[in-house]
Each structure stands twice: as structure tokens, then as C-alpha cells.
């Protein structure tokens, strides 16, 4: 894992723990777990995450990219943000 993705992962994890799980316990968040299935995010929770990612990482998420596979887990988000930062 590159240092860039490590930074992204830390920020994403921090945001989800603080703002969606209201917890400080790192053990509660598995990077591969589906946040939708676990009930951590509801439909508007995804919009919150997108707003956070856009603001934090200077990316723009297109409507066609608003797919569960991009935002359903920490690892998916990290991959998605890394890809956008590398290509845009």
C-alpha cells in the first residue's frame, strides 16, 4: 500500500468512525465490510460520504460513478479515490 492510499484510508476511516458510527473504537470498522449491509449508512449516508470525499480529496463524483461498488466499504472508497486522483 502506498503512502498516499494509507493517508486516504486513515481519513476515510476517521470520517466514518466519527460521523457515521459515532465511535472511536478502530476495531468496530472492518475495511472490507459492507457499510450498507451493516446498516452503518442509509441512502442519505452515502450522499454524506460523497460530500466528504469531494471536499477532502478535491475530486468530483459523477452521477454515473454513484455506484454501491465505489462506496460500500472503506477499501472500495480508497480504491475509488486513488483511481480518480491518479486519472484526473
Amino acid at each position: 500500500m502506498s503512502s498516499e492510499t494509507t493517508v486516504i484510508e486513515a481519513k476515510v476511516r476517521g470520517y466514518i468512525l466519527e460521523n457515521l458510527m459515532f465511535s472511536s473504537d478502530e476495531n468496530e470498522l472492518d475495511n472490507d465490510a459492507s457499510l450498507l449491509e451493516r446498516g452503518v449508512i442509509d441512502s442519505t449516508g452515502v450522499l454524506e460520504i460523497i460530500l466528504f470525499l469531494e471536499g477532502e480529496f478535491g475530486i468530483e463524483v459523477k452521477a454515473s460513478e454513484m455506484l454501491p461498488e465505489n462506496f460500500d466499504s472503506v477499501n472500495n472508497m480508497v480504491r475509488f479515490v486513488s483511481r480518480l486522483q491518479g486519472t484526473r
Binding site: L36, E37, S43, T44, V46, A63, M66, L67, F71
Partner: peptide, 17 residues
């Protein structure tokens, strides 16, 4: 304002639960 169906794919993922 923040409709749960704003993104079709995400809404489907939510309502599929």
C-alpha cells in the same frame, strides 16, 4: 432535498435490503 433516490444505483442498493 437529500432524496434517498438521488442516485438510482445507491437507492436500489438501499431498498434491496
Amino acid at each position: 432535498d437529500h432524496s434517498p433516490v438521488a442516485s438510482e444505483a445507491l437507492a436500489q442498493a438501499f431498498f434491496k435490503r
